[in-house]
């Protein structure tokens, strides 16, 4: 935000500008904030008022299993995504401009493709008669098709693929700001390539690492399409569990409770992130 308009304090002068804001604000309040608030409300009132829905977090093994599965897959996804994203961002930040443009295209292109299409593509690649199994069997390397899909492996592949661009952007932003002389300086002072990386470059990218991890983790938590398709209903993550409760089992209390917990977890994570790094910079980097 390079130039901010001077604030106008007089109500009379600001009224016309508020009229510009009004349509979006009304739409957002009536058709977004209100239904969202209602989700929270229902979680405390149905089937009967009280905390009975939330008690299930402690008492219900099924609910706990869903949360544990979700957290496990999200942590695995975040770790793999961060490693892959870091390597890409590192190569990107030191590449010559012409190469950089191509790398950017390859990183951003998937962002423009529907998540559903990408999940479908992974199905065609990973399934029993998919491209990988056909190729491996054709080459005589395996007799039985590998189980690459409808399990946590398939979910992780699809989610990592979806998340990598979101990790690369904040990581790249933090690397771009590093003075390019620092690593040579460290080496000139006697540090090996690896030591220079570990003691100078890596610590300086810490804000990027934190931001990227939290972002990827948050996006993963509430992810629906990819886990639903690549998990094939066998591995239940929280979003699909919620969908089942509402559309198939019509258990509003349980569904909204899970949705509310998810929302609260995300808000807490974002709040923690904002205490550590400047969120505007993270989002402004794309």
């Amino acid at each position: 935000m390079a130039v901010a308009a001077p604030p106008s304090r007089v109500l009379g002068a600001s009224l016309p500008w508020w009229l510009l804001i009004a349509p979006a604000l009304i739409l957002m309040l009536a058709f977004y904030a209100f239904p969202l608030a209602e989700v929270l409300w229902i979680s405390f009132t149905e089937p009967e008022p009280g905390l009975s829905n939330y008690e299930r977090l402690i008492t219900s093994e099924a609910v706990q299993r869903v949360w544990i599965t979700t957290l496990r897959i999200c942590i695995i996804t975040t770790v793999i995504t961060l490693l892959a994203g870091y390597v890409v961002a590192y190569a990107l930040s030191s590449a010559p401009p012409r190469v950089q443009r191509w790398m950017f295209l390859f990183i951003l292109l998937p962002l423009w493709i529907s998540v559903l299409v990408r999940a479908f593509a992974w199905v065609t690649i990973l399934r029993r008669q998919g491209l990988i199994n056909e190729a491996l069997i054709g080459a005589g390397l395996i007799d039985e098709p590998l189980r690459l899909i409808w399990n946590e492996f398939g979910i992780a592949v699809g989610m990592v693929h979806y998340m990598i661009p979101y990790a690369v952007l904040p990581l790249y932003a933090s690397m771009r700001d590093i003075d390019p002389r620092l690593v040579p300086a460290a080496r000139g002072l006697g540090a090996s390539r690896f030591e220079a990386f570990r003691s100078v470059f890596l610590p300086l990218t810490r804000p990027g690492i934190i931001a990227a991890s939290v972002l990827v983790f948050i996006f993963s938590l509430g992810f629906y399409v990819t886990p639903a398709i690549l998990g094939g209903g066998r591995t239940l993550m929280i979003a699909e569990y919620i969908k089942l409760q509402i559309l198939d089992l019509i258990r509003w209390g349980l569904g909204t409770m899970m949705a509310s917990t998810l929302l609260i977890a995300i808000v807490l994570l974002l709040w923690a992130l904002s205490r550590i790094v400047d969120i505007r910079r993270v989002f402004g980097s794309g």
């Binding site: 002389r181 620092l182 300086a185 000139g188 002072l189 030591e195 220079a196 100078v200 300086l204």
Partner: peptide, 27 residues
């Protein structure tokens, strides 16, 4: 470079921003 044992002062100094003065000098 790290095996040559030459001291170097860079243009713009290239001080490590995450280290104190003493840590920079001690690097």
């Amino acid at each position: 470079p790290e095996k040559r044992n030459f001291g170097m002062v860079f243009q713009g100094y290239a001080l490590f921003p995450h280290m104190t003065v003493a840590q920079n000098v001690g690097f």
